Amino acid sequence: MDNHSIKVNYCSTGKVKPKSDELEFGRIFTDHMFIMDYSDSLGWHDARIIPYQPLLIDPSAMVFHYGQSVFEGLKAYHTPEGDAQLFRPKKNLERINRSNDRLCIPELDEEFALHAIKQLVGIDKDWIPKADGTSLYIRPFIISTEAYLGVAPSRHYQFIVILSPVGAYYKEGINPVKIAVENKYVRTVAGGTGEAKTGGNYAASLKAQELVANSGYAQVLWLDGVEREYIEEVGSMNVFFKINGEIVTPALNGSILKGVTRDSVIELLKHWDIPVVERKISMQELYDAHENGSLEEAFGAGTAAVISPIGQLTWNGDHIIINNAETGSVSKKLYDTLTGIQYGKQEDPFGWIEKVKAVSKVK
């Protein structure tokens, strides 16, 4: 597909933009959206940017019945110079194609998809909030749209991108959270869809999250689905532990999502010559490290929060307090550096940033 073959239909009247202190996550959406269709006969075609609106979709569309869908999440940031920029979007597009492969969804042209995202963000650039910590959340997703109730890969799809201005994740500063170790429910298993970013994984996580939230916990720490022994993720984030000066994160094993922030954290730690290793780590090993005083920090890493320090883990009735329930020095340095690069306040030595040009709305 030609990298410039996107039809644009501008909205006639723009919405009223919310104030920065009124923003919630994923509740408000911008003026425009991107859509592209797929059919077996035409491939991906009819790329267009249109006013944000409901989808017209058949009740028998396969996405409703068999869950054949994938999604991504990334952000656009407003810099001190007034520019708009994205953080490592190519990694998100590489990952959506890995998810596509697992869900039997046709591959996207990653270069064209990035062009489409940049054009959409450029059109709605004035929706990027400017207050500290705020950003424009970008949600690309693909759904199966064939009207058919047979259990088979769909022959029709839509690739859609929507945008949502979001508030600061930490309104009162970065603070450690309480996490419950989940022993009953599992998120996924190796060979399943855990390494794909598909809606069913998140639906499967809701029950455990709901139960621990009622007991005052922010999230759950997921263990592996076979032995219920090895640590995998925390909520919908990758997880890291500082043990005796070394940073440990669970190795990718087929059930753990390959996070863009995870990858960025590992690159930064290596850049700083801080020892970091990807390997299996059991809950018993973590408990023993706490008992002998070598467990120094713990944190989650993901797009929404960037870095989320963990102050307490509860496992089989035992409360594991980490770093006196205070934010550790590595967690804080990672958060400050990643957000500094994302918002254009710090040098980007890795080439992670993609600039976005504003698009003049000539109707």
Score class of each variant (00 low, 15 high):
residue 304 A to V: 07
residue 213 A to I: 00
residue 164 S to H: 10
residue 111 E to Y: 01
residue 277 V to F: 02
residue 107 E to V: 07
residue 199 G to I: 04
residue 239 V to W: 09
residue 6 I to Y: 02
residue 323 N to R: 14
residue 266 I to D: 05
residue 93 L to S: 00
residue 75 K to P: 04
residue 129 P to C: 02
residue 191 G to Y: 06
residue 175 N to T: 06
residue 29 F to M: 15
residue 13 T to H: 14
residue 240 F to P: 08
residue 223 L to A: 14
residue 119 Q to C: 05
residue 314 T to N: 13
residue 246 E to S: 10
residue 108 L to A: 07
residue 98 R to N: 06
residue 169 Y to D: 02
residue 231 I to K: 00
residue 180 A to M: 15
residue 23 L to V: 14
residue 346 Q to L: 15
residue 311 G to Y: 12
residue 211 L to P: 00
residue 140 P to G: 03
residue 96 I to G: 00
residue 222 W to R: 08
residue 342 Q to Y: 04
residue 260 V to H: 06
residue 119 Q to F: 05
residue 152 A to C: 05
residue 12 S to L: 15
residue 296 E to M: 08
residue 298 A to I: 08
residue 349 P to Y: 11
residue 288 D to C: 01
residue 281 I to D: 07
residue 233 E to G: 00
residue 206 L to P: 03
residue 264 S to Y: 04
residue 140 P to E: 01
residue 144 S to Y: 13
residue 229 E to H: 00
residue 46 D to Y: 08
residue 30 T to G: 13
residue 167 G to K: 08
residue 112 F to N: 03
residue 100 N to S: 14
residue 30 T to L: 07
residue 109 D to F: 02
residue 39 S to W: 11
residue 56 L to D: 11
residue 238 N to D: 07
residue 218 A to H: 01
residue 254 G to N: 03
residue 272 W to E: 13
residue 92 N to F: 05
residue 332 K to T: 09
residue 339 T to C: 11
residue 91 K to I: 08
residue 31 D to S: 14
residue 18 P to C: 06
residue 215 S to Y: 00
residue 223 L to Q: 10
residue 119 Q to H: 05
residue 118 K to L: 00
residue 160 I to N: 08
residue 7 K to P: 01
residue 40 D to Y: 00
residue 315 W to I: 15
residue 149 L to E: 04
residue 234 V to Q: 01
residue 206 L to D: 00
residue 353 I to F: 08
residue 331 S to E: 08
residue 220 V to I: 02
residue 208 A to M: 03
residue 146 E to H: 14
residue 90 K to Y: 12
residue 247 I to W: 09
residue 342 Q to G: 02
residue 245 G to V: 01
residue 198 T to D: 01
residue 73 G to F: 03
residue 177 V to M: 03
residue 41 S to W: 00
residue 121 V to R: 07
residue 293 G to C: 11
residue 118 K to V: 01
residue 67 G to I: 08
residue 33 M to D: 11
residue 291 E to V: 14
residue 226 V to P: 03
residue 70 V to S: 11
residue 65 H to N: 09
residue 170 Y to P: 02
residue 248 V to H: 12
residue 44 W to Q: 06
residue 259 G to T: 10
residue 342 Q to P: 02
residue 133 G to Q: 07
residue 348 D to H: 10
residue 177 V to Y: 02
residue 187 R to G: 11
residue 257 L to Q: 13
residue 164 S to E: 10
residue 77 Y to M: 03
residue 343 Y to P: 03
residue 219 Q to L: 00
residue 41 S to V: 00
residue 303 T to W: 04
residue 122 G to F: 06
residue 336 D to I: 11
residue 338 L to R: 10
residue 61 A to D: 10
residue 161 V to M: 09
residue 312 Q to I: 11
residue 210 E to V: 02
residue 323 N to P: 09
residue 179 I to L: 10
residue 265 V to I: 10
residue 289 A to S: 13
residue 335 Y to D: 09
residue 265 V to T: 08
residue 98 R to C: 04
residue 343 Y to R: 03
residue 342 Q to D: 03
residue 327 T to A: 09
